[in-house]
């Protein structure tokens, strides 16, 4: 049992935070885990990519190899598309659809979503709307986390526990929104079965 995940978004979206949450959840579940990221210059509003690998066997490469990701998690639709080469044959895409158009030549969003739909089994999530409904616009990354988590072979509830632990110093409203956001992400997946390679 293994799952290779590439997470992609824009600096400031909480991509690295979610990669870390997933890694912690998988660790609690007893898997071997390797999670890689970049810090520094790339964080300043630019494209951000993180890798997360879980396996019941020891893991070799620190990065998911190109063409091997079982799951591509997008926090932003253009960034999901940019990382398509990482996706394995039969791999799945789950991505938030709200564009972050902080660049001059951002393509029309309908074209971006259309390009994403070309790949079978792509799941598009309006994470922004779900986060707002959950009570905090800042919980958009946790909606994506909830969705990604439910596509991984991990024990239900583990992620919630980790977020709750992190949220100890948050206000009750923030904590509540975080938990609701995770649940909304999970619900958005519907009954799709977990990925694994």
């Amino acid at each position: 049992m293994k799952a290779d995940v590439v997470l992609a978004g824009v600096g400031g979206q909480g991509v690295l935070t979610v990669a870390r949450l997933l890694a912690e959840a998988a660790t609690v579940d007893g898997f071997h885990v390797v999670q890689g990221e970049l810090h520094g210059m790339s964080q300043r509003g630019g494209a951000v990519q993180a890798h997360f690998r879980l396996s019941d066997q020891p893991i070799e490469s620190p990065q998911v190899p190109r063409g091997r990701a079982d799951l591509l998690v997008g926090f932003e639709p253009v960034e999901a598309l940019r990382n398509i080469a990482w996706l394995a044959p039969g791999g799945r895409i789950v991505t938030a659809i709200r564009p972050i158009a902080n660049v001059p030549d951002y393509p029309p969003i309908e074209k971006v979503l259309e390009a994403l739909r070309q790949f079978p089994e792509t799941i598009l999530i309006d994470a922004h709307a779900l986060a707002v409904a959950a009570g905090s616009v800042r919980a958009e990354n946790l909606v994506v986390a909830g969705a990604a988590f439910s596509l991984l072979p991990l024990t239900r509830g583990k992620l919630r526990g980790i977020v709750q632990k992190r949220a100890e110093r948050w206000t009750a409203a923030e904590r509540d929104a975080a938990i609701k956001a995770l649940a909304a992400g999970r619900a958005a997946i519907g009954g799709a079965p977990p990925v694994h390679g």
Binding site: Q43, G46, P65, G67, E79, I84, V103, P104, Q118
Partner: peptide, 17 residues
């Protein structure tokens, strides 16, 4: 390995800012 490609769209670069 054969890699997925998407040729439909030219993606804008997103450098740090």
């Amino acid at each position: 390995l054969r890699l997925h490609e998407q040729a439909a769209l030219e993606l804008p670069a997103r450098p740090p800012r």
